[in-house]
Design a protein around this nucleic acid. Structure first.
Lengths: 335, 335
DNA sequence: TTGAAAGCGCTAACAA
DNA sequence: TTGTTAGCGCTTTCAA
């Protein structure tokens, strides 16, 4: 393949002039510019960006670490990140970690070895946790007290708003389908749930909490658990910590012969597109995925280009989206 | 950051020796190796892979061109591609084209400028179409007669099998929700539909075909169209060319007061995970996404490393997955 | 087994 | 405005 020297030979100028003609055309005379352009066309020249990046010690690539790319919410975040990156001349390297620490570390090597300039982390960082030292890292859709800048919502307030809504229409026994007990999203949303209960003076019951891993299958299992509870212990509403688990739970309840929302109301979190099309449509918390992805990418690029990381997280508004999967309890709410 | 020269200085050897110690340790004496390892640790040295890749004129990156990463079927393909790539030491650059020709061309520049070594195309190529000249390109989940190697199923046979099944339980008026009229998947699946009808001696009706763009929204619109048809013209079953459109159509039919499968059977294509969890669960064609993604990635890497492209596509088996969204028509099938 | 030195393709001082 | 030249970090001949 043609290189800059071949072009310079064809055009009868130096390689430096070719380089200038390509990157700063106004620093070159019209005549030379024309000659170079003609030579570029003739040689079918495409600059080798590996060389250019190497020279400028910048890969012009962002690494996105995502726990599971088949989760629609993450896919939407990534779409926004990619849009933003592309506009700024950066490409996106995909690191699907499958929640594996090992895989995450393997991917971080890409940055340590300069194949990428920074990281956008899509899993929530734990408050104490240190992200890789000396690397440019931002978080999107994470939690508070993360060890780096994040574009996110207030998960606690969102969960609280949702559960408060359930309480306000009469629910007293509200089950939860959460993440693992050390997952930061789980902890913040659980805290919001508890705040709502406390404000309403409702006592919490340990058997109303099921852990999951944010997949349809986990929601399904949790749904089976709640469907099998004796009637007087069974919750009249279920707060699921994402939409996929809510959809999985809905299926289990239906199979057990329970109607939604008649026998049990269901609420999710994220407002992915399937929530709207579910049967019945799913009440949920809408997270501003596009805005979070865009803000995270813009901030990371700014950091890569030498600016300091913002001191404060960007906390964006969420929205409570009411749909038919939630209704008032059809029986007296308390025993 | 430390470079190879610093390590060589600390170890008291030449840079060449450091390089050898790192890439071909057996060509270096035990003693020197130990010195180098110690120096690497002391300097906190990480080799600059931009430099190494530049030198070896290989980016060790694959570009995946995907029409829409929020489509779960594509996300599953990408997951398999990424697994395979990572095992072979390649990373994955994401090119979400949003079905835009312009964006696709922008991304192809990444290969032309050596930021990626080859392309995995997830949209179907048209038979005549030329993929970028001189580039390593493979296709996954595409169509027959593509201008490059592809790992795919036989779309025509799959559609034919599905529609034949609908006919076998009594359906005669079978609507289609397809892609745009020049989409290769649309054409092959339509051809399978026609074959099934022809074999059964059923005549085709033009008003039973609706075009879409493989999104939930497009399926919803098509569903509204079919729900609004006069009863005697309304199909008793609907063949949707992917699961998302099937789920969208289901929602529209339900809103129109039609029951599934009582008033209309619904079938999809792809067998994405939501199909199993839909209400009712969706009959569909299962495509082997993981196998296709893996085969495409392996083949591309093999081509990048100098082997010729396979002459024949890899055609994998599909599976007809029967679920409750399809049942026999409840009224006499023909007028 | 090791070192010296050239060079991958490009950019950027510096000089003319 | 243009050319000369050095050098980014690494690998790889070639010699020793």
């Amino acid at each position: 393949m043609a290189n800059i020297r071949e072009v310079s030979r064809i055009a009868g100028v130096s390689t430096a002039t070719v380089s200038r003609a390509l990157s700063t055309p106004d620093k070159v005379s019209k005549k030379t510019l024309a000659k170079v352009e003609q030579a570029v066309a003739q040689a079918g020249y495409r600059p080798n960006l590996m060389a250019r990046n190497f020279r400028s010690t910048r890969a012009y690539a962002l690494l996105v670490l995502v726990p599971d790319i088949t989760n629609l919410f993450f896919a939407e975040l990534i779409q926004a990140i990619e849009d933003t990156a592309q506009r700024a001349g950066y490409s996106v390297l995909l690191g699907d970690t499958r929640d594996s620490h090992k895989r995450e570390e393997d991917y971080i090597q890409l940055v340590e070895t300069r194949q990428a300039d920074g990281i956008i982390q899509l899993r929530p960082y734990r408050p104490g946790e240190q992200p890789a030292q000396g690397l440019n890292v931002v978080s999107a859709a994470g939690c508070s007290d993360a060890p780096c800048f994040g574009a996110r919502i207030d998960n606690r307030a969102a969960a609280c708003a949702l559960v408060t809504q359930l309480i306000s229409i009469g629910h007293q026994r509200i089950g939860i389908v959460g993440g693992l007990s050390d997952n930061p999203h789980h902890l913040e949303r659980l805290s919001g749930y508890r705040q709502a209960l406390e404000t309403a003076g409702i006592e919490e019951h340990a058997n109303l909490l099921q852990e999951g891993d944010f997949t349809l299958g986990a929601g399904y299992q949790a749904g089976q658990y709640f469907a099998a509870l004796p009637h007087e212990q069974r919750p009249t509403a279920l707060f699921c910590m994402n939409d996929d688990m809510a959809l999985g739970a809905m299926r289990a309840l239906r199979e057990a012969g329970l109607s939604i929302p008649g026998d049990m109301s269901i609420a999710g979190f994220d407002n992915c597109e399937y929530a709207r099309y579910a049967n019945p449509p799913l009440t949920t918390i809408a997270q501003p995925a596009r805005e979070m992805g865009q803000a995270a990418a813009e901030t990371l690029i700014s950091m890569i280009e030498g600016n300091p990381a913002p001191q404060q997280d960007l906390v964006l508004p969420f929205e409570l989206v009411l749909r038919d999967s939630v209704g008032p309890p059809t029986q007296p709410a308390s025993v």
